[in-house]
Design a protein around this nucleic acid. Sequence first.
DNA 1: AAAATTTTGTGAAAGGAGTCACATAATTGA
DNA 2: TCAATTATGTGACTCCTTTCACAAAATTTT
Lengths: 213, 213
Amino acid sequence: MKYQKIPEATIRRLSRYSRCLEEMEQGGEKVVSSAQLASKCMVNPAQVRKDLAYFGEFGIRGVGYYVKDLLASIKKVLGLNKEWRMAVIGIGNLGSALLSYKDFLKQNYKIVAAFDIDPQKVIGRVSEKLGKPVEILHISRIKEVAKERKIEIALITTPPSEAQSVANLLVEAGIRGILNFAPTQITVPEGFVVKDVFFTNILDNLAYLLSSS
Amino acid sequence: MKYQKIPEATIRRLSRYSRCLEEMEQGGEKVVSSAQLASKCMVNPAQVRKDLAYFGEFGIRGVGYYVKDLLASIKKVLGLNKEWRMAVIGIGNLGSALLSYKDFLKQNYKIVAAFDIDPQKVIGRVSEKLGKPVEILHISRIKEVAKERKIEIALITTPPSEAQSVANLLVEAGIRGILNFAPTQITVPEGFVVKDVFFTNILDNLAYLLSSS
DNA sequence: AAAATTTTGTGAAAGGAGTCACATAATTGA
DNA sequence: TCAATTATGTGACTCCTTTCACAAAATTTT
Ligand SMILES: NC(=O)c1ccc[n+]([C@@H]2O[C@H](COP(=O)([O-])OP(=O)(O)OC[C@H]3O[C@@H](n4cnc5c(N)ncnc54)[C@H](O)[C@@H]3O)[C@@H](O)[C@H]2O)c1
Ligand SMILES: NC(=O)c1ccc[n+]([C@@H]2O[C@H](COP(=O)([O-])OP(=O)(O)OC[C@H]3O[C@@H](n4cnc5c(N)ncnc54)[C@H](O)[C@@H]3O)[C@@H](O)[C@H]2O)c1
């Protein structure tokens, strides 16, 4: 297949396929057709095939796809064939929940540091719920610790008013990926990537659908 | 303007505009042009105008839009000119965080009930952090309480294995909107709406962008 | 009061994304 | 071995979304 720009939407669907394939692998299924995968992920079968075709030929005509191989291929495409080392910034309600979110580990995401600005939270507090507790460090140590622990992604869970200044620190510390939970637009230089998780936007979407039907 | 189907993407952008306009209103700005709003929301100015045009003529040529009026108009379009009554199902790490998320209130979303299946959590536990604490009820009471408290939206924060059966209960209880945080596909009958909040999918997207650049 | 300026609202054009339909390839069964 | 069956990979088509470009309307300047 000749080169084409890969749609954002394709990447989003690939992670959906990945989750479905994991469930199928757990369930002991060896082979899956584009039609089965599509129905499970609620998309069109041709869409599944087209999405995969951007990255290679993973199937066997007349048969389908080997679940295990396809899963491995998709993970490789998504960059999930390595462990991603993450930090959480702002250990309040949401930050604490993320610290004890064990599914991250299953997905090759590992939280290796936690930061806050409040000395009360820093002194001696650790997340008890994980197997290996994470100590909460003062935000001023971010640059030093980022290098030391090879942090590549940071999750921002501070109040929105602090999000941009935290992002600036992260950029300075050379952390290239940011997942932003604070409901405000933050900007970073070329070469850095921000993705937002804005619950209330999705809630708004839901409210709209409910009120217009 | 003649009738057209409204793109999903337009609705998503409207909530972004809404957030930006709120910040502007706080900041005392009275008037805003499509160019200013666009730059703040990182979209094309023509996009802003076209999005708004689906719903009416809100601007004044040569001037721009009155911040306050535009905000009110957008909120009306989104169905945010009323209070939405919500329940949280599954009061673990994430559910607790959502219970104490005070921004919901600012946005006309009100959590009026919390449910869990674990008797330990049900007996006597309340969320202390909100002004008015929410008592945690046993999930078996959902149908009764949904009617009583006029619950319209439920946030599912149970383990993924329970998500579908919880969704079934919600449908039975006549709760039409579901915001699903459990990383699994759930299905509901016609007339009900599910929106998913899958962090790890967004993280995957981030990982892809980092590893392919 | 007329010209210059600003900024909206929108038809038309361009660009992307999703679906269809079928040639192609593998497997199964006779 | 060959026909029938199954299911992929992909060019062509359709549909949707975004951007462009400009007339229309309000304001400001001269
Ligand atoms: N609680 C939720 O369920 C929820 C849901 C969606 C979005 N959010 C967003 O996530 C963010 C956090 O929400 P929360 O409810 O956990 O708030 P929170 O107030 O409980 O936590 C914020 C934490 O950030 C720390 N902090 C403040 N400034 C900091 C800085 N400069 N550096 C490092 N740490 C700093 C504070 O000490 C605090 O511990 C907010 O932006 C909120 O809007 C929260
Ligand atoms: N913790 C996070 O930061 C995070 C992030 C993203 C997604 N999630 C997802 O959100 C969900 C909750 O995560 P968590 O970390 O809070 O888990 P958790 O185990 O702490 O909480 C789950 C809660 O659901 C309750 N529950 C179980 N079955 C129930 C039922 N049938 N009815 C009512 N309540 C029931 C449990 O008693 C428990 O209190 C999971 O699906 C998880 O994958 C969590």
